[in-house]
Design a protein around this nucleic acid. Structure first.
Lengths: 227, 227
DNA sequence: CAAATTTGTTCGTTAAGCCTAACATTTAAG
DNA sequence: CTTAAATGTTAGGCTTAACGAACAAATTTG
């Protein structure tokens, strides 16, 4: 079985591959059937069937009750889907004036139906961007791997001054909250303190100078690099 | 059964409705099952089943072996699909640098998956265009009917000076030929003569001044209005 | 106008992707 | 370490949109 173009995979297969890949982008733990089912809004039995089929196509390795791992071919498809998704998000924001909390769902649908040509033209129009509106790295057309990842704000040492490099796009409502706070990719801030049992991280941001308290979910969603 | 949004119809149903509507946009003859099957690349039995289902949903009227007619609800959906298609084509050409012979297939896929929001944003970005790159009228968001239609070049009286108002997008190869000849919407020309048995229409175009002979398929694909 | 041809319809089947229910395995708790 | 709980798998069905084969109706032709 040859390398097949993205378009030869069913939408469901594309989603499975992207999700498996995404699970390991920011944390090392491999994904499970039930987590996949929950994220995709389907039953575990559906995912179990789907994974079996992907394994038959040589896109993942999986023995019953075993872990789910992408093959090289599967990873290539997954990365291509991620590239599509993130270029679309960038295009919707930069060209069509979407806000960063609106783009995820639209991109989720379009990533399956736009042609490679359209992806290339968007990429060119945008000047070959390397990050999407949430700061997530956009893989190149050759599937080149991601940029440096940074660490979660919740794990950054107190006292350090850092720049936001990405903010997880999982929760649009949280994104709107960050917009209100003036937190976005490239915002610089100083980590004031972590208060462990309250699960609160306090940061200081400039212009205007202010202190912000962030709970665990917020400080896990924000990734930073030292500046 | 209430008026349902476009997105609640299957892609197949959307295509059926659009095709039925399109058949009567430029010629009065209603469409047949076999023509639909041929255009959609499926078997007549598939179309026959599909039409029956649309009739059950109140989107077309059709008795077995009878003619196929859109209901008001069906027409509204069809026009919404046509609007989507033509706005997409316009967007791809104006914003992403597609040529007019490339856009049809891309729009054909995307029209089923873009959100109403995206359609609105493209429409705004484009300044609410009223014609697509082939000159076809773009229905408004309210489904307002089309612009004046003009007549086929093959039916324009010799001696008249006219402007091209639309060129059928059915055949990309023919569109590339027209590009070479410098024929596009809004090009002005004078009809020199029709030679009936040769099925050739000769027209004179300015800048640079030149005579062009067009066969029947070409002069049927071009629609003109008096200037 | 009767026969032949074309056109349209019905019906049984297939494939994908989902479901529920029943069952199997693994992991966690007592 | 054994049982209970959680997780994963299999089996059987449903729906949609396609197909081909067989049949029905309408149209064209001789």
């Amino acid at each position: 079985m040859d390398v097949m173009p993205v378009s030869d995979l069913s939408h469901a297969a594309q989603n499975y591959l992207k999700l498996i890949w995404s699970a390991t982008e920011w944390s090392p733990a491999p994904i499970t059937v039930s987590v996949m089912a929950e994220r995709l809004g389907v039953r575990p039995s559906t995912v179990s069937d789907g994974i079996k089929k992907l394994a038959g196509q040589g896109l993942v390795t999986h023995a019953p009750y075993g872990s789910i791992e992408l093959t090289d071919a599967g990873r290539a498809h997954a990365v291509a889907m991620v590239r599509r998704h993130r270029l679309l998000e960038t295009f919707l924001v930069d060209v069509l004036g979407y806000s960063w909390d609106e783009v995820h769902d639209e991109a989720e649908v379009l990533e399956h139906t736009v042609s490679d040509t359209l992806i290339d033209r968007m990429d060119r129009k945008l000047g070959h961007p390397v990050r999407d509106p949430h700061g997530d790295p956009i893989p190149g057309a050759d599937g080149r791997p991601s940029m440096p990842k940074g660490t979660q704000l919740s794990a950054a040492a107190a006292g350090n001054t850092v720049a936001i490099t990405r903010i997880s796009d999982a929760d649009p409502q949280m994104l709107r909250y960050f917009t209100e706070l003036g937190l976005a990719p490239d915002t610089r801030l100083t980590v004031t303190e972590h208060r462990p049992y309250a699960d609160v991280t306090t940061v200081r941001v400039h212009e205007p100078e202010r202190d912000i308290d962030l709970g665990a979910s917020a400080s896990d969603a924000i990734w930073v690099v030292a500046v």
